[in-house]
């Protein structure tokens, strides 16, 4: 029973957070500086999600070339930057990551 209560609470919290500005902020109009600041949200948040996983996958800093997360991330970034093809970057880096992890 507790598990269903857990899930219901998580679902409610999550939808309220996502609805915060979109639903409840309808009449809000942001000042120009805030609109500009919000442009940096994708770069800041996604990088904050990626960096600890790439540089410290086990919790401690691992900058060695034997860290498949780090090598895979650098390759994903390089392919995306050079080709602008997101899917290609994901597939290539994932394949390389898998190879490093399982063959190396």
């Amino acid at each position: 029973m507790t598990i269903w209560l857990t899930i219901a609470g998580m679902a409610l919290l999550t939808v309220l957070i996502r609805a915060s500005f979109l639903v409840f902020g309808q009449r809000l109009s942001f000042p120009a500086w805030l609109n500009r600041a919000l442009h940096y949200v994708p770069a800041a948040v996604l990088t904050a999600l990626v960096v600890p996983m790439a540089l410290a996958p086990q919790g401690t800093l691992d900058l060695s070339p034997a860290n498949p997360y780090l090598v895979g991330t650098l390759v994903a970034g390089a392919v995306a930057l050079l080709t602008r093809r997101t899917l290609l970057a994901i597939v290539v880096s994932f394949a390389l990551y898998g190879a490093l992890r399982w063959l190396g």
Partner: peptide
């Protein structure tokens, strides 16, 4: 997940303020 987010972000980093945002956040 790391690969997906990296592939989304990397092309944006050609602009310097976005690069600064990413570097500081990271």
């Amino acid at each position: 997940m790391v690969a997906t987010f990296t592939a989304i972000v990397a092309p944006q980093l050609k602009k310097r303020p976005a690069l600064a945002a990413a570097a500081a956040a990271g």
